[in-house]
Simulated assay, not measured.
Amino acid sequence: MTRILLIEDDDTIARGLAYSLEQEGWTVTCFGTLAEGRAALETGSFELLLADVGLPDGSGYDLCAAAKSRGIPVIFATARGDEGSVVLGLDMGADDYIVKPFRLREVASRIRAVLRRAAGDGEHIARLGDVTIDMQRAQVSRRGQPVLLTALEYRLLLTFLAHPGQTLTRGQLLEGIWDVAGNFVNDNTLSVYIKRLREKLESPDKPLIVTVRGIGYRLEADTHAAQ
């Protein structure tokens, strides 16, 4: 059974999250402080750490290195939704970053995606033609040159990568990028981010993101992972 360590100092949020995740069949151990989180990582066995950043006795960021050194995937769930905080969390090695207020269904979906990646024998690099995505470092390059993506553009790319070859509705894509923004993302905004992602990653003769008229979009290129 999958064991999740939840570090959240807001009792209402903690109870709601724990209940929701247990309904997914996972076992949840919950604490509210940095010290308790450290002790739990030292003495317990977990498949995933879900941690708030702002804790009464320190930062949830301090738990990330301890968890990653034990091979435990990390997801931050926090009210700090500015792009700098998101990028910092991902640069520290977090596998995902969710901004409050979040939807419980979305949290469960993100956890499943991270657990699937973690089960892939440590594979963390995806390739789309001449585009390389290092998901451990949250870095994207094309033909060996860095590609600068905003947090929303990067989250949109990860949403496509999680469903290669599958047509995603605009609603599904909006769900995938909602929490990173921390604000309302509408249908027109999504079109802008799709356009920007295409401009940064696609070659004129080889589209990566294909429009499926009347439905949504599909990641067209063959995707494979490598160490």
Rank of each mutant, 00 (worst) to 15 (best):
T2P: 12
R3V: 02
L5V: 00
E8T: 01
I13E: 07
A14Q: 06
E22W: 04
V28Y: 01
F31V: 10
T33K: 06
E36L: 10
E36F: 03
E47Y: 06
L49A: 06
L50P: 03
V53A: 04
G58M: 11
G60C: 10
A65R: 15
A66R: 14
K68A: 09
R70A: 14
G71R: 15
G71S: 14
D82L: 03
G84N: 14
V87A: 11
V87H: 04
M92E: 08
G93V: 00
A94I: 00
D95N: 12
D96Y: 03
K100Y: 11
K100A: 12
F102T: 08
R103Y: 15
S109D: 15
A118G: 06
D121S: 13
A126P: 00
G129P: 00
G129L: 02
D130Y: 03
V131T: 04
A138M: 02
Q145P: 00
A151L: 01
L152Q: 04
A162R: 13
Q166N: 12
T169A: 14
R170T: 12
Q172L: 11
Q172P: 05
L173C: 06
L173Y: 05
E175P: 01
T189V: 03
I194V: 07
K195L: 10
L201E: 05
P204V: 03
P204K: 07
K206T: 13
I209C: 09
V210E: 15
V212C: 11
T223F: 05
